[in-house]
Every structure is written in C-alpha cells, then in structure tokens.
Design a protein around this nucleic acid. Structure first.
Lengths: 255, 255
DNA sequence: ATCACTAATGACCGGACGGTAACTAAAATG
DNA sequence: CATTTTAGTTACCGTCCGGTCATTAGTGAT
C-alpha cells in the first residue's frame, strides 16, 4: 500500500526545470533561526485569531510550509503554544513601570496617566488581548500568574497610595480591605475592558487612547476619596462629613 | 441541573438475560420536552466550561446518552449552540432596568446602585460570563448586538445623566463625545471585568458584591464632574491650546 | 561538479470529529 | 394481550486532527 504504484509520479515533471513558475511554488530553505522566527510570529497571529484549537495544518498553510515541518522546530503542539505564551508575555512587562508608579516625587495623577498610557501601548493589541483571553478560558496558569503580578505591582500599590492621599492610616496599621483592592482594580479593569471591547467584541472605541486614559485617571482620583471614606467610615471614627452635595446617607455600610 | 443520575425512571425491571452489568444504565426514555431540557441545560454548562469546540460525544456522555441522540433534537451542532445562545441571553435582560435607570425621581446614585446590583445578580455567573467571552472570541454576532444594547440602554443614558448632574449642555445641544460614552463604559467595564476576573481567571474577588457596587458607583459619581469638566473645557470656552491641566479648581492636591 | 548535510516534504497512522442510516426497545393505544 | 409509535441505540462514513518516518531537494564546502 505504501509506494506500490510506480505509475504515481503524480508530480508534473514538465515545468520542473523552470523554477519561476509561480510565486511561492518552490521549496524555501531557511536558516533554522529564521524559520523558527517565522513560525513563532505566525503562530502568535494564528492562535490569536482562531484560538488554540486551531489546526497545525492551517497554521502551516499560512506560513507556506507543511505541517510536518512544524515538528522539526517544536516537538508537540503544546510546546509551540508554550512558546507563544513566552513570546507574548515575557519581556513585555517593564520594570520601569513599577519604578514610575512608586516615584512620589511625581504627582499620583501624572504617574498613573503615564503608566497606563505606556501600559496600553504595550497591550492594546489584537494578539496580546485575544491570546490573554483565550489562555484564561483555557485555564492556563500563566494568565493567573500574570494577574497576580498586576495585583502585586500595580493594583495594591495604587490602593496604598490612595491611603496616603486621602489621609487614612497606612497599610502597616490597617491592612488593605478586599474592597479597597477591588477599587484599585476598577481603574485597571475599565481600561482592560476597553481593550476587550475593541479586540474581542470588535466595537468602536475612541481613537485617542491618551485622552481616555487621562479622563479615567482624573475621574478615578477625584472619586476615590469619597469611596475610601465610605469604606472606612466604619473602621475608624473620622467622620469628616462633607457639606456639599447630598447629605451623608443615614445608612451605614451594610453588614 | 434537573437531576443528576436518575438511572431508574420508575420502571423496575429484572435484568434481562445476559445483560447483567449492573452499572450500565438502562435505556431511559423521556418525553421529548424533558430530554430537550436536559440537553440544553447540559449544553450550556458544557460549552461554558470547554468552549464551543467541545465534542458532542463528551457532552452526550455527561448527559448519559449517546451523541447520536443529540441529533434527534438538534439537526446540527450549530443549531444546538444557537439554542444555547438563546438560553443564556434571551429573557435575561430586564426592561425594568431601563425604567429604573431613567427614573429621575430617584437619585442617580441609587438608580445606578440598584441597577448594577440587579445586573450583577443576573450575569455574575459561570455560564453567562464564560459563554459571553467564548462567543465574543468566536465572533458571534449576538454578543456584538448585546453590547450595542448595553450601550444604547445603559451606557449612553448614563452619559446623558452626567450632563445633567454636572450642569453641562444637554445632549440635544452638544452630542455625546466618544470620550463621554467611554467614561460611562468605565463603570460598566470595571464591574464586568470583575466578573471576568472571577469566572475566567479564577481569581479571588470580594464576596460582598453589593458593597463593591456601592463603592464603584460612589466613586464614579464623585469623580465624574471633574472628568466631565476636563472633557468639556475646550467645548465650553476658548480652546486653551496647550498645557495639560492648569486653570482648574484643582481641589485635590496630592501631598 | 559533486558531495555531505539537513531543511522540507509525501505518505501514512490511530483516533476523534460531525453527521447518517438502520435497527432496538420502551411506552401509548386498542 | 398484540400492535403501533418513536426515543434511543449500534454501526458506520468521510474528514480532520496531532504526530511519525522515510524520502527529497536546497545549499555551502570542496
């Protein structure tokens, strides 16, 4: 059954000598490094589009190679996918971001604005957002670890800054409430959700992300003191009733 | 969620001949309505967990039937998936929510708090969130249409309310800026992102969602006026070309 | 020109997929 | 009871999947 029929010779021999028959007809032999680069880039784009259930044959077709050739470079599909994770997540986190956020010589508003502008510049992309969501749904550990990084390096530091700017006790005295951390997640979440609306749900979003970031940061910081007081009005006895607007709600914090 | 394992549906029957195999469930014959109900419920849970690429044989195994039997109720897999969409999205949108949001006899803060508490009660669920995200990645139109509904019935009305509460011109005079709509998306986005963190990335989130909603709404409304003024400072008076942020009542000065 | 090296490929495998057809048996009807 | 109806099953089809192996052909060194 294997190669029984000599009548095969299915490949048309006639135009064989002439090598310029069609644009990509011929076998292209690359340095392994170059080929691997092409495969990884192609895989990132491919899996971002169709998800990790996409077939290797389809990926190979896009790359202009056969799917078997992929196995020369990655022993299994899983290995290729792991490489895609590396490619997308490793090295895109800038430690300078953490430095910037911690630099109290700059106003918090400026720090947050600059950070989120830089952060969005790094992640507000088709590949990054979709692979991040695909991986999350699949339950890949790397996404959880990434979010724990965000929480430890961005969200919780921000929540601690709010303690300072609102004149509440330091977190050394009173640990962060889950609701305070959640509040800081709010800023992060609304900006990430913007990326999801754009790259997952294909909605129209404003072109000028810098303005969106600025507005979000301003609103966040302008609103945070009220929310912090609300959260802490039970834990400490500094009522500090605000005269403006509506009178202070008679009801305390539920539970 | 109907029943787990009702292997014996009222019929007590002596094992017939050779067919001992006690664990083997006998053929269970249900009314088509009941069976269809089981299939749909099972399909919602199944596809929410593994995504729409999950195999029908696996789904059938969970249901205790053979995969061929699914075709008796749904002509194709696609038809079953469409039914899942219906099941999850249709009828879960409450028109009372829109009425509540538009009721100006209630303070905006109360309206938003009540609405988002009710909204989260409806959508903050494993099935809903994950299927919504899976469907978005797949590019299913129903999710886009759903988000357009949210924008038209929740987000833009909220943005218009902000015009009123901040004393800015009505939207009849000055149409909503994209950045204003985006601002209103911010509140929605941070709460939806909370659901994504919980049900997609399996992170710990506060147990008391009511408090989270209340804090988010208070912060949103307290911060919105500053952000609105920022957005409209060019609209209302002379452009003031450069300089990011200066001639404004910067009430809150960090440090 | 040719040789060695090795990218790249063609052929193939077992299994899982969505889907079809024929058959089996549990309930409804008389 | 016998008969009819039809929910549910066994058996199977063509296709595609990840992965293996022997073979082919592009390229630098000689």
């Amino acid at each position: 059954m294997a190669d029984d029929n000599g009548s095969d010779a299915g490949v048309v021999r006639a135009p064989k000598g002439v090598r310029s028959a069609s644009p990509q007809r011929k076998r292209r032999r690359l340095d392994p490094e170059d080929r691997e680069r092409e495969i990884v880039d192609g895989a990132v784009a491919f899996f971002a589009e169709v998800g990790f259930d996409g077939g290797l044959r389809d990926l190979a077709k896009r790359l202009g190679i056969t799917h078997q050739n992929l196995f020369r470079y990655f022993p299994t599909k899983e290995a290729l996918i792991d490489r895609v994770y590396e490619e997308v997540y490793l090295g895109r986190w800038q430690v300078e971001w953490e430095v910037l956020l911690a630099d109290r010589t700059i106003a918090l508003e400026q720090r947050l604005t600059q950070f989120y502008r830089a952060y969005l510049q790094a992640i507000f992309r088709y590949d990054w957002v979709r692979i991040f969501v695909f991986a999350g749904l699949k339950g890949v550990g790397i996404t959880q670890r990434y979010l724990e990084l965000v929480q430890a390096r961005v969200v919780e530091p921000l929540a601690r800054e709010l303690r300072v700017t609102t004149g509440l006790p330091d977190t050394a005295e009173v640990p962060l409430l889950p609701e305070e951390t959640e509040m800081a997640w709010g800023l992060h979440g609304e900006l990430f959700y913007l990326a999801v609306r754009r790259w997952v749900y294909e909605m129209k979003v404003p072109d000028d992300l810098d303005t969106v970031v600025r507005v979000a940061v301003v609103r966040f910081l302008a609103g945070a003191p009220s929310a912090m007081r609300l959260l802490h009005e039970g834990t400490l006895r500094a009522p500090a009733p605000r005269s403006g607007r509506r009178a202070r709600p008679a009801r305390r914090n539920p539970r």
